[in-house]
Design a binder for these strands. Structure first.
Lengths: 187, 187
DNA sequence: ACCTTTACTGACTGTTTAGTCAGTCGAACC
DNA sequence: GGTTCGACTGACTAAACAGTCAGTAAAGGT
């Protein structure tokens, strides 16, 4: 067993359940089944652990999403694939999602280079830029379209997480809401 | 000076800057210009303080929003007023908004009765229900429409906060995005 | 004049917690 | 068979922190 990963897993579980504070490093170590010192052997401070967990989750999410994208389709279809797979990912990784959510609103975010955050959004930004330039999407500020799409996705995600739908119903909701979104942003 | 309020003000400022943890009660008291014990005289625990702050902000927000709503208009106009005044409020109270955001994703929320949270959403929910029943809005699950609208508003808000627009430009963005939202949800 | 209550103080304490460190253990290289 | 090295341990400590408490001071009642 990779103890480094076991610590991340335990931290994720406990952070989501109790929050960053209220989760002593000692409990994380115990949950992971390693000694207290081992945690600090791999992650010099608690903050470093939190940041490492964030980066780990983000990159696993990105990797997983890109697997499912087949380029060469129309912009509409590529966007739909992005939309769908990001929602599918959060549904399959609810705990991870809740951690990222908590992380984003905390003061930790400032400590991560803005670069690290941007890296994950860049492809989506490029896609939107292209859509506007090709007049497939409404002519507006790229950032604004991006946040509009982001907000929509965020809302639908919260909805799906709060309800306990079957796989089929989930897919249906995703289809339906994408049509609504597309109707709003297409030129 | 009302020391009870001074403590809330100080707590708000420090919580947003450093987060709940990393903000010792001693610093809050110092910032508020009161003795350490005074804080615990008014708020028996730190958790109680956090909850009191949340309720204080929420009710001030609700009060402020309802002032600006004139009933009797069409459903579309009422929704636009809600939309506009909630965005205006968060723009004018960025710190408060960031606190609420942080609070919502933390474990504290669970401690507040779900009732307290619902109380503030109820009027908006009712409005949407009515809109669906009257066939002014698309026939879909109320909760889903609600989260769609919420997500949209959340996104636009983030956009407005991140940019430093003039009052006029802000109003223009609000108008524009409402039209997009309305186009998406109207029947 | 005396009592009661309420707002407020700040020094103090018990506990919790992040982080340390001296040392164990097995593997791998010489 | 000895030496080095990286992974790992867990008892320990210094600091920080939430919450206490004995007491003050002023207002208001009787």
């Amino acid at each position: 067993m990779d103890k480094k990963q076991l610590i991340l897993d335990a931290a994720l579980k406990l952070f989501v359940e109790y929050g960053f504070h209220n989760t002593p490093t000692s409990k994380i170590a115990k949950e992971a089944g390693v000694a207290n010192g081992t945690l600090f052997y791999f992650y010099p401070t608690k903050d470093e652990l939190v940041k490492a967990l964030y980066i780990d989750i983000k990159s696993r999410m990105t990797a997983c999403m890109y697997e499912n994208i087949q380029t060469g389709s129309s912009l509409r279809d590529i966007m739909k694939q992005y939309y769908s797979s990001s929602l599918q990912w959060t549904l399959a990784h609810a705990t991870e999602f809740r951690f990222v959510e908590q992380f984003n609103t905390s003061a930790y975010l400032k400590q991560i280079a803005a670069e690290e955050v941007k890296k994950h959004m860049q492809p989506a930004m490029d896609l939107i830029s292209k859509g506007i330039k090709d007049k497939v999407l409404k002519p507006m500020d790229v950032d604004m379209l991006f946040t509009l799409i982001g907000g929509h996705t965020f809302g639908v995600n919260q909805y799906l997480v709060s309800k306990q739908f079957s796989k089929a119903k989930q897919t249906q909701v995703i289809e339906e809401t994408f049509e609504m979104l597309w109707g709003m942003i297409k030129n």
